[in-house]
Design a protein around this nucleic acid. Sequence first.
DNA 1: GATGAATGAGCGTTCATTCAT
DNA 2: TATGAATGAACGCTCATTCAT
Lengths: 200, 200, 200, 200
Amino acid sequence: MSPRPDRREERTTQIIEAAMAVFAEKGFNAARMSDIADEAGVSKGTLYFYFEEGKDAIIRTILKAILGRELSMARRLLAVEKTSLEKLDLLTEAMLEDLKKIKPLLSLYFDFMAMAMRREAVHDVIKKTFREYTEIIENLVQQGIDNGELRPVDVREAALTIGAIFEGTLLLWAYDSTLVDFETHIKTGTQLLLDGLKTS
Amino acid sequence: MSPRPDRREERTTQIIEAAMAVFAEKGFNAARMSDIADEAGVSKGTLYFYFEEGKDAIIRTILKAILGRELSMARRLLAVEKTSLEKLDLLTEAMLEDLKKIKPLLSLYFDFMAMAMRREAVHDVIKKTFREYTEIIENLVQQGIDNGELRPVDVREAALTIGAIFEGTLLLWAYDSTLVDFETHIKTGTQLLLDGLKTS
Amino acid sequence: MSPRPDRREERTTQIIEAAMAVFAEKGFNAARMSDIADEAGVSKGTLYFYFEEGKDAIIRTILKAILGRELSMARRLLAVEKTSLEKLDLLTEAMLEDLKKIKPLLSLYFDFMAMAMRREAVHDVIKKTFREYTEIIENLVQQGIDNGELRPVDVREAALTIGAIFEGTLLLWAYDSTLVDFETHIKTGTQLLLDGLKTS
Amino acid sequence: MSPRPDRREERTTQIIEAAMAVFAEKGFNAARMSDIADEAGVSKGTLYFYFEEGKDAIIRTILKAILGRELSMARRLLAVEKTSLEKLDLLTEAMLEDLKKIKPLLSLYFDFMAMAMRREAVHDVIKKTFREYTEIIENLVQQGIDNGELRPVDVREAALTIGAIFEGTLLLWAYDSTLVDFETHIKTGTQLLLDGLKTS
DNA sequence: GATGAATGAGCGTTCATTCAT
DNA sequence: TATGAATGAACGCTCATTCAT
């Protein structure tokens, strides 16, 4: 009945998407508010109408959007009815799938990583994400040990190593996609590790 | 005609060290040329006398200094008279040692990583470093296979996985040093992987 | 055709009162149209519906309202049946009374004074007010001389001096209300002057 | 011996004088930093080199300059060897003299007055000036009473009334210089009051 | 009549860089 | 060699005003 439907959310999304594109291309610093406005097809003033706190608020919103998406996917895995090893495979697959989607935003991800070293707020969000991620993997490993699929290794160590392989491969691939085929290596790398974890 | 020809090098070093300190603390963007001048105890003008191209030239010089140092250390390992597994241990130790020294520069490292996504020149330097690093590890793995210490796995895969564990653990630790004890986990992680690579 | 023709006046008053409150608190410059809209409980657009020329029109309307009110009070005094000295006392009382009412608007008064130095229109309104005020006092002084209450001094001079004492005391008090008790000093000051004017 | 003489003070003065001219003409708000830069014949950047805190710092500096000058003059009067009445005359003369010089800055004075109603810092400076001013006059009046020139009136009241006549006349004159001849009226006004204060 | 989303000109401020001394 | 005063392009942000609904 309201003459104006909720345009707010629509516009916000529009701006965030424009901002992601601009940030990804130029980086947070080189990106101008006017670039974002142009990309979104609105005026500079409009940016401030929807993000009163300006550039920083836009960056924060994007940070949450990017990190938030990865986790929700991982959380769902825990409930699936599979063996731990199969779930770990699924986790790898899922990450891969997700990464393909946000590939053009990869530079943004690294920007956030760098930013986190100096901005407490960003640091905290990333830290929390990493932690939850590790916990999820720990759970999978623990299940694996419990049902005899894996050797009784230190769960935390194993989980961190898997996490490290994920992050590290991503890093290596980002800088040399010819040397590293992400899809192949993330699978093989995990496999190599799991080989050592399995009960012989 | 200049009274002391090596005054130049002296001053350059002085400026670079000041710049590293400032950049590490504030990041490339927030760091002001005047901050660097103050830290170095010279005037702003002097900065341009030694780095005609300005801020960018200083950044470039630092990039080479940081990435260059890690490699020289790794290269020497190849010549050492040890078994491959022992050499891999040594490599880990050496990296650990080095990392302790540059710990305060860690944020700089991440800045470069983020920068590399957009600046070809930076990207190339990092890529080359990663590549050489991988090759060194490949060599070690190959030696291990050749003398029967390791299973005949894909050398490239194994090397990349080790590299990924190094980089990934560094990342995880950088964001959550309470969750991750770098020294312990880099060793355990590598060990877990090597367990799977060893001939049984 | 409009359903309620006096709705206009109602709304106008509502807006002006809100504007006075906001202007008094923040000053003309710092006051935002949105502040006024919020205070009045209407939308920003409505402000422009009733004051097509915007902020300036609102300021002008307030100026007239403030300066207009003081005079009407003074004019009535002339007709009262009292001796001149008594009338001067009444004038003082009346001003005091009025001032108490508009005390929260005092900052507005000073804003107008400052504005008047640069805006002809404002200047004229204030000038006219001062002039009429002075004339009224001149009349009272002339009456006093005529009926022997006061020495035959220069009427204009005396009137201006009384006016100056009013304005000056107001100023002094506005900046240091602990040093100056407005009520006491305006009376005493006028009295001190009148002492010198009286026939001995 | 220093190659660069103290250009700092020179430049600062140059900027302040330019700023006074611009502020007097346009008012603090309408005056643009670029106007000041143009008027001073320097770049906008230079303004910030000498006044790091920007526009506000310039305004503050001017405030002190304007209010400060009046006081130093008044203070000297106290030491002069004259009767109190003669000193009061001298004070009037001195103020008059000073006012002629800063006449073009009168609008600035009113700006400060208006500003003071809302900015604590400005308020304090003006308050302090008024207070010292009043004390000086009080001293003169007290001397007058002590040596029998004046009636034993309340010193504070008398001083405030004199101050009020000064300020009030200034105000009246500022808004209607045709009605009020400042020089004549400030003298006559004070005289009228003093007539009432003198011992008969 | 009333709304509030949208606009965009314009401002204060920053800072890498230059250059006369 | 070294300085630091001076520059000016460029940016983030504000807010009075407009107008489709």
